[in-house]
Lab assay of single mutants.
Amino acid sequence: EALLLQRRRVTVRKADAGGLGISIKGGRENKMPILISKIFKGLAADQTEALFVGDAILSVNGEDLSSATHDEAVQVLKKTGKEVVLEVKYMKD
């Protein structure tokens, strides 16, 4: 459990079709971090076996998301290339 509370760096390699394969919720306007709300089976994020629903995305390719709005986070995630480095931390409810 202590492991979950540490920052983790996960590299996601996207397939030619399909994006990261995650849905996010939260954002500055909700006074919440950007959280992974869904991981789609078989897509890139799922294949890492290292990302979990409830993980907060702290940064994407080094771009800090700690004070991002939901829309800003969506845009940052959309413009990523084939390889995406996510810094995440599991957030307890």
Rank of each mutant, 00 (worst) to 15 (best):
T48I: 03
T69W: 04
K25A: 15
V53R: 04
V10C: 04
G54I: 03
V53N: 02
G62A: 06
R9Q: 14
S37F: 06
K89D: 07
E63K: 14
D55C: 03
L3F: 13
R28S: 13
A56N: 06
G18N: 12
H70P: 05
G27W: 02
R8E: 00
K25C: 13
T11D: 05
A68R: 06
A2F: 15
T69A: 06
A17S: 14
A56E: 07
K38L: 03
I36E: 02
E87P: 00
I39S: 03
M91T: 09
M91G: 08
L58C: 08
G27F: 00
V10D: 05
R8F: 00
K25Y: 13
I57K: 01
M32G: 15
V60A: 09
M91A: 10
V53F: 00
S66M: 09
D64Q: 06
L65R: 01
F52G: 05
R8Y: 01
S67R: 11
A15H: 11
A17F: 12
I36D: 04
L51K: 00
L3H: 08
I39F: 01
D55R: 01
R9W: 10
S37T: 13
L3D: 14
L3V: 12
I24Q: 01
K89R: 10
E72R: 08
G27E: 00
R8A: 02
T69L: 06
D64L: 05
G27S: 01
S67I: 08
A68T: 07
N61I: 01
I22M: 09
V10T: 01
I24Y: 00
Y90P: 06
K38Y: 13
I39E: 04
E72A: 08
S66V: 09
H70E: 12
S67W: 10
I34D: 03
M32S: 15
E49L: 08
I34K: 00
Y90F: 14
I24S: 01
I36A: 02
V53T: 07
A56H: 06
V88R: 01
E63G: 06
V12T: 02
E87T: 08
A17C: 10
D71K: 11
L4G: 14
F52T: 08
L51I: 08
V10I: 13
R9D: 03
L3W: 07
R7P: 12
A56V: 10
S37Q: 08
I34M: 01
D55W: 02
V74F: 05
A15V: 13
R8I: 01
G62I: 00
G26Q: 00
V53P: 09
E49F: 08
I39N: 04
A45K: 05
V10Q: 02
L51D: 01
G54T: 01
V88D: 02
S66H: 08
L4A: 07
H70C: 12
Y90D: 10
K38C: 10
G27K: 03
K89M: 14
A15C: 06
D93R: 07
F52I: 07
F40D: 15
D71P: 07
R13T: 15
S23M: 15
I24M: 05
V10W: 03
R8C: 01
E49P: 06
H70S: 11
G54K: 02
E63S: 11
S37I: 06
D64A: 05
G18A: 12
G54M: 02
T11V: 13
